[in-house]
Amino acid sequence: MSVGVVVFPGSNCDRDVRWALEGCLGVPTRFLWHEESDLSGLDAVVIPGGFSYGDYLRCGAIARFAPVLAAVQSFARGGGPVLGICNGFQVLTELGLLPGALTRNAKLHFLCEPTALQVLPGQCRWLQGYGAGETITLPIAHGEGRYQCDPNQLQELEQNGQIVLRYGQNPNGSMADVAGLTNAAGNVLGLMPHPERACDPVTGGIDGRRLLETVLG
């Protein structure tokens, strides 16, 4: 059992993800530099938060062309579990593994606070440790987290049960209170909140643990 953690120039939550997995849950990790493309021996891949390539042009726009992501894309298409947190979620939408886009928070502020979320696990492999409709608290830390897609796409997501995490009190103006989305197959999850920052009791809640544990269980 080993989890790959992608590292771009500008990633800043890669070590937090490693601590959550190794330090809190005892799961070995391997950093995947953006120029690598060997995912052999990995059971899951996490694209962590940060500001990949400085968020130049648009958040996630340049990261999309990194060699490691071509490998992650095949891994995901083959059913491998992929988790994109915050900037990782933005990258997954740019990559086309998840639909829509993340845009500037409606009130412009960078938001950094604990947020109540409703979990609707559906088919999402990462969320099977939570009850349907369960409320959990995870921290958010983003300036561009307002989920946006066209109305037909939104309807499709609703019908397929792909909106698996919703804000209790929408902090950023996201359509349909979207905080996290899964793909149709349920192996890819993108979310703006940070589950890796809610794993160590020293820093507060541990509601993020089950998310990282379940898929690896």
Binding site: R104, A106, L108, Q148
Partner: peptide, 14 residues
């Protein structure tokens, strides 16, 4: 440019 249907909060602030 942002599509007309997309909110531009930075534009509104300006």
């Amino acid at each position: 440019s942002l599509r007309p249907s997309v909110l531009d909060p930075a534009g509104e602030a300006t």
